[in-house]
Amino acid sequence: MRFTLIKELRSDALMRPLLSGMLLFTGSFLVADIFLKRDHIGLDFATLSNTLYGNEEEFIEPVTEHFILELLHSDIFFMMMTLLTLAAVYARVCPLKRVAVVVINIVMAAGIADIVLLALAYYRGGGYLMPWLAAFWTWHGGALFMACASLLYLNVLRRI
Protein backbone atom coordinates (compact mmCIF):
# COMPACT_ATOMS: atom_id res chain seq x y z
CA MET A 1 0.00 0.00 0.00
CA ARG A 2 3.02 2.27 -0.32
CA PHE A 3 1.44 3.86 -3.39
CA THR A 4 -1.13 5.50 -1.10
CA LEU A 5 1.66 7.65 0.38
CA ILE A 6 3.56 8.63 -2.83
CA LYS A 7 2.69 12.16 -3.97
CA GLU A 8 3.57 12.11 -7.68
CA LEU A 9 2.41 8.65 -8.56
CA ARG A 10 2.45 9.19 -12.33
CA SER A 11 6.07 10.32 -12.37
CA ASP A 12 7.30 7.60 -9.99
CA ALA A 13 9.60 5.40 -12.09
CA LEU A 14 8.89 2.25 -10.09
CA MET A 15 5.28 2.54 -8.95
CA ARG A 16 3.71 3.51 -12.30
CA PRO A 17 4.83 0.40 -14.26
CA LEU A 18 4.23 -1.79 -11.19
CA LEU A 19 0.67 -0.57 -10.76
CA SER A 20 0.00 -0.64 -14.52
CA GLY A 21 1.20 -4.27 -14.68
CA MET A 22 -0.88 -5.21 -11.67
CA LEU A 23 -3.96 -3.55 -13.20
CA LEU A 24 -3.45 -5.40 -16.50
CA PHE A 25 -3.19 -8.71 -14.65
CA THR A 26 -6.27 -7.90 -12.57
CA GLY A 27 -8.27 -6.99 -15.69
CA SER A 28 -7.18 -10.23 -17.36
CA PHE A 29 -8.11 -12.18 -14.21
CA LEU A 30 -11.60 -10.65 -14.24
CA VAL A 31 -12.17 -11.48 -17.92
CA ALA A 32 -10.77 -15.01 -17.49
CA ASP A 33 -13.00 -15.52 -14.42
CA ILE A 34 -16.07 -14.79 -16.56
CA PHE A 35 -15.08 -17.56 -19.03
CA LEU A 36 -14.19 -19.91 -16.16
CA LYS A 37 -17.55 -19.39 -14.45
CA ARG A 38 -19.35 -19.86 -17.79
CA ASP A 39 -17.69 -23.27 -18.21
CA HIS A 40 -17.79 -24.20 -14.50
CA ILE A 41 -21.38 -23.44 -13.45
CA GLY A 42 -22.90 -21.51 -16.38
CA LEU A 43 -23.85 -17.87 -16.79
CA ASP A 44 -27.41 -18.23 -18.04
CA PHE A 45 -30.52 -19.29 -16.13
CA ALA A 46 -30.94 -22.72 -17.77
CA THR A 47 -27.30 -23.86 -17.41
CA LEU A 48 -27.06 -22.54 -13.85
CA SER A 49 -30.28 -24.29 -12.92
CA ASN A 50 -29.01 -27.57 -14.41
CA THR A 51 -25.71 -27.20 -12.53
CA LEU A 52 -27.22 -26.42 -9.13
CA TYR A 53 -30.38 -28.55 -9.17
CA GLY A 54 -29.67 -31.15 -11.89
CA ASN A 55 -32.07 -32.15 -14.66
CA GLU A 56 -33.76 -35.56 -14.63
CA GLU A 57 -34.84 -35.36 -18.28
CA GLU A 58 -31.27 -34.77 -19.44
CA PHE A 59 -29.75 -37.08 -16.76
CA ILE A 60 -27.71 -34.24 -15.20
CA GLU A 61 -26.77 -34.69 -11.54
CA PRO A 62 -26.80 -31.60 -9.29
CA VAL A 63 -23.48 -30.43 -7.87
CA THR A 64 -22.68 -31.47 -4.30
CA GLU A 65 -22.81 -29.17 -1.28
CA HIS A 66 -19.01 -29.52 -0.95
CA PHE A 67 -18.56 -28.26 -4.52
CA ILE A 68 -20.59 -25.11 -3.81
CA LEU A 69 -18.93 -24.49 -0.43
CA GLU A 70 -15.43 -24.89 -1.89
CA LEU A 71 -16.31 -22.66 -4.84
CA LEU A 72 -17.66 -19.95 -2.51
CA HIS A 73 -14.70 -20.26 -0.11
CA SER A 74 -12.06 -19.83 -2.82
CA ASP A 75 -14.10 -17.15 -4.64
CA ILE A 76 -14.38 -15.06 -1.45
CA PHE A 77 -10.60 -15.11 -0.99
CA PHE A 78 -9.81 -14.07 -4.57
CA MET A 79 -12.58 -11.45 -4.60
CA MET A 80 -11.52 -9.82 -1.35
CA MET A 81 -7.86 -9.57 -2.33
CA THR A 82 -8.57 -8.40 -5.89
CA LEU A 83 -11.24 -5.87 -4.96
CA LEU A 84 -9.28 -4.43 -2.03
CA THR A 85 -6.16 -3.85 -4.15
CA LEU A 86 -8.19 -2.50 -7.06
CA ALA A 87 -10.23 -0.20 -4.81
CA ALA A 88 -7.08 1.13 -3.13
CA VAL A 89 -5.47 1.99 -6.50
CA TYR A 90 -8.68 3.45 -7.93
CA ALA A 91 -9.32 5.57 -4.83
CA ARG A 92 -5.74 6.87 -5.06
CA VAL A 93 -5.68 7.76 -8.78
CA CYS A 94 -9.30 8.84 -9.41
CA PRO A 95 -9.50 12.64 -9.11
CA LEU A 96 -13.30 12.51 -8.58
CA LYS A 97 -13.31 11.27 -4.99
CA ARG A 98 -17.10 11.14 -4.59
CA VAL A 99 -17.43 9.09 -7.77
CA ALA A 100 -14.72 6.76 -6.44
CA VAL A 101 -16.64 6.20 -3.18
CA VAL A 102 -19.87 5.44 -5.10
CA VAL A 103 -18.16 3.04 -7.55
CA ILE A 104 -16.29 1.23 -4.74
CA ASN A 105 -19.52 0.88 -2.74
CA ILE A 106 -21.41 -0.57 -5.73
CA VAL A 107 -18.65 -3.04 -6.69
CA MET A 108 -17.97 -4.23 -3.13
CA ALA A 109 -21.67 -4.58 -2.28
CA ALA A 110 -22.26 -6.50 -5.54
CA GLY A 111 -19.29 -8.76 -4.68
CA ILE A 112 -20.77 -9.59 -1.28
CA ALA A 113 -24.22 -10.08 -2.87
CA ASP A 114 -22.63 -12.49 -5.39
CA ILE A 115 -21.45 -14.75 -2.55
CA VAL A 116 -24.65 -14.56 -0.50
CA LEU A 117 -26.99 -14.99 -3.48
CA LEU A 118 -25.17 -18.05 -4.88
CA ALA A 119 -25.42 -19.71 -1.45
CA LEU A 120 -29.12 -18.75 -1.24
CA ALA A 121 -29.72 -20.02 -4.80
CA TYR A 122 -28.22 -23.40 -3.87
CA TYR A 123 -30.01 -23.80 -0.52
CA ARG A 124 -33.27 -21.91 -1.14
CA GLY A 125 -34.05 -22.32 -4.84
CA GLY A 126 -34.10 -20.80 -8.31
CA GLY A 127 -35.57 -17.45 -7.28
CA TYR A 128 -32.08 -16.24 -6.41
CA LEU A 129 -30.47 -17.18 -9.74
CA MET A 130 -31.33 -13.99 -11.65
CA PRO A 131 -30.29 -11.71 -8.74
CA TRP A 132 -27.03 -13.70 -8.55
CA LEU A 133 -26.43 -13.16 -12.29
CA ALA A 134 -27.08 -9.42 -11.82
CA ALA A 135 -24.63 -9.27 -8.89
CA PHE A 136 -22.03 -11.28 -10.82
CA TRP A 137 -22.11 -8.98 -13.86
CA THR A 138 -22.24 -5.85 -11.69
CA TRP A 139 -19.11 -6.64 -9.70
CA HIS A 140 -17.20 -7.94 -12.72
CA GLY A 141 -18.22 -4.91 -14.83
CA GLY A 142 -17.51 -2.48 -12.00
CA ALA A 143 -14.14 -4.01 -11.20
CA LEU A 144 -13.16 -3.95 -14.90
CA PHE A 145 -14.22 -0.30 -15.02
CA MET A 146 -12.03 0.48 -11.98
CA ALA A 147 -9.05 -1.31 -13.57
CA CYS A 148 -9.46 0.47 -16.95
CA ALA A 149 -10.10 3.88 -15.35
CA SER A 150 -7.06 3.49 -13.08
CA LEU A 151 -4.91 2.56 -16.08
CA LEU A 152 -6.14 5.65 -17.93
CA TYR A 153 -5.60 8.02 -14.99
CA LEU A 154 -2.20 6.51 -14.36
CA ASN A 155 -0.89 6.61 -17.93
CA VAL A 156 -2.96 8.89 -20.14
CA LEU A 157 -5.48 11.32 -18.72
CA ARG A 158 -3.91 13.69 -16.22
CA ARG A 159 -1.25 14.26 -13.60
CA ILE A 160 -2.08 12.72 -10.24
Binding site: H66, L69, M80, I104, N105
Partner: peptide, 24 residues
Protein backbone atom coordinates in the same frame (compact mmCIF):
# COMPACT_ATOMS: atom_id res chain seq x y z
CA UNK B 1 -13.53 7.78 2.93
CA UNK B 2 -12.92 5.67 -0.21
CA UNK B 3 -10.15 3.76 1.62
CA UNK B 4 -12.29 3.39 4.72
CA UNK B 5 -15.14 2.07 2.58
CA UNK B 6 -12.88 -0.51 0.92
CA UNK B 7 -11.45 -1.59 4.30
CA UNK B 8 -14.95 -1.95 5.78
CA UNK B 9 -16.06 -4.17 2.91
CA UNK B 10 -12.82 -6.15 3.20
CA UNK B 11 -13.73 -6.90 6.83
CA UNK B 12 -17.17 -8.13 5.71
CA UNK B 13 -15.48 -10.37 3.09
CA UNK B 14 -13.19 -11.66 5.87
CA UNK B 15 -16.24 -12.59 7.98
CA UNK B 16 -17.76 -14.40 4.97
CA UNK B 17 -14.47 -16.24 4.35
CA UNK B 18 -14.26 -17.37 7.98
CA UNK B 19 -17.95 -18.32 7.96
CA UNK B 20 -17.63 -20.38 4.78
CA UNK B 21 -14.50 -22.03 6.24
CA UNK B 22 -16.40 -23.00 9.39
CA UNK B 23 -19.34 -24.42 7.39
CA UNK B 24 -16.93 -26.30 5.09
Amino acid sequence: SAYRTAIGYFAVFALLLLGSGAVL
